[in-house]
Structure formats: structure tokens, C-alpha cells
């Protein structure tokens, strides 16, 4: 029985996605009832990580479903952007200013983060070896 569950879960990608949705659903309900300030998905991730670390769950039971969901994650963002339909006032100089802040800000964040990590990495690898 356990062996059969193992085989079924490690092969079926859709079943794995359903499992991930179930974990998220349960954690979302928990967050709602306890009024936690953290999104349910994050709690779900922590729970799954804990179960994996304890050895209660094997990572092959979720790896294909996880890869599937993460591959299509870009699509899940699209509907939220349509909020612009209700804000025509942003198609103006204000909108351009917001775009400029995002563009320059993102550039600074990326360069700053990457360089600090790279400098740290090189420093540590030089002093370790």
C-alpha cells in the first residue's frame, strides 16, 4: 500500500500539484483563523520544508509538480496587472515617473545585491583557502 502510494505520487505530476494546493489551502485556513500577518503560502512552504527535513515526506513526491508550478509562475502574475484598466490616470506623466522609479530602482537593487554577494563570495573563498 505504502509502496503503491510512493510510486503513484512520484510519477503523477497533476497529483503532486493537487497536493501542493491542498497544503496551501490548509495553511491559508490556519492563517485566516489565527489572523497571522504572514501569507498562507509562506507558512505552507515552511511546513513542507519541515516535513522534508524530518524525512516524513520524500522530495520526489513533490518535485515534478513543484517544477511545473514554478515554470508557469509568470502567468499567475498577469491578471493582477489588469488593475491598470481601472486607473487610466496612470497613463500620463505620473505613470512615466512611476516607471522611471521602477526601472532605476530595480537596476540599483540588482547591481547592489549581485556585487555585494560576489564580493562576499570572493573574500570568503580567498580567506578559506
Amino acid at each position: 500500500m505504502l509502496r503503491r502510494t510512493n510510486i503513484l505520487l512520484s510519477r503523477n505530476r497533476l497529483l503532486q500539484v493537487v497536493g501542493l494546493i491542498a497544503i496551501w489551502w490548509a495553511c491559508e485556513a490556519l492563517v485566516q483563523t489565527l489572523r497571522l500577518p504572514v501569507p498562507g503560502g509562506v507558512i505552507g512552504m515552511a511546513v513542507l520544508l519541515l516535513l522534508l527535513a524530518c524525512g516524513r515526506i520524500r522530495s520526489v513526491w513533490f518535485s515534478r509538480g513543484s517544477a511545473g508550478l514554478l515554470d508557469h509562475m509568470l502567468l499567475f502574475f498577469v491578471p493582477a496587472t489588469m488593475a491598470l484598466l481601472d486607473h487610466p490616470e496612470l497613463f500620463s506623466l505620473t505613470g512615466l515617473k512611476i516607471l522611471a522609479v521602477i526601472l532605476v530602482g530595480t537596476l540599483l537593487v540588482m547591481v547592489g545585491t549581485a556585487l555585494s554577494v560576489e564580493v562576499c563570495f570572493r573574500w570568503l573563498s580567498r580567506h578559506a583557502g
Binding site: 500539484v17 501542493l20 494546493i21 497544503i23 496551501w24 495553511c27 491559508e28 501569507p39 498562507g40 503560502g41 509562506v42 505552507g44 512552504m45 515552511a46 513542507l48 520544508l49 522534508l52 527535513a53 522530495s59 513533490f62 518535485s63 509538480g65 513543484s66 517544477a67 508550478l69 514554478l70 509562475m73 502567468l75 499567475f76 502574475f77 498577469v78 491578471p79 493582477a80 489588469m82 488593475a83 491598470l84 484598466l85 481601472d86
Partner: peptide, 27 residues
Amino acid sequence: YGEYIKGTHWLVALLGPATVAFATPIY
């Protein structure tokens, strides 16, 4: 936006399970 999101809010909701899915690559 109201009409659009009525049919597609489930796509945004999938961001939740996708966040859970990060546990696997991190592990």
C-alpha cells in the same frame, strides 16, 4: 478590471501553491 478578474482570479490564487512549491528546490 472587475469583469476580467472574475474569470482569472484563480490564476492569481495559484501563486499561493507556487510559493509552497519553493520548498522542494530549496530542500
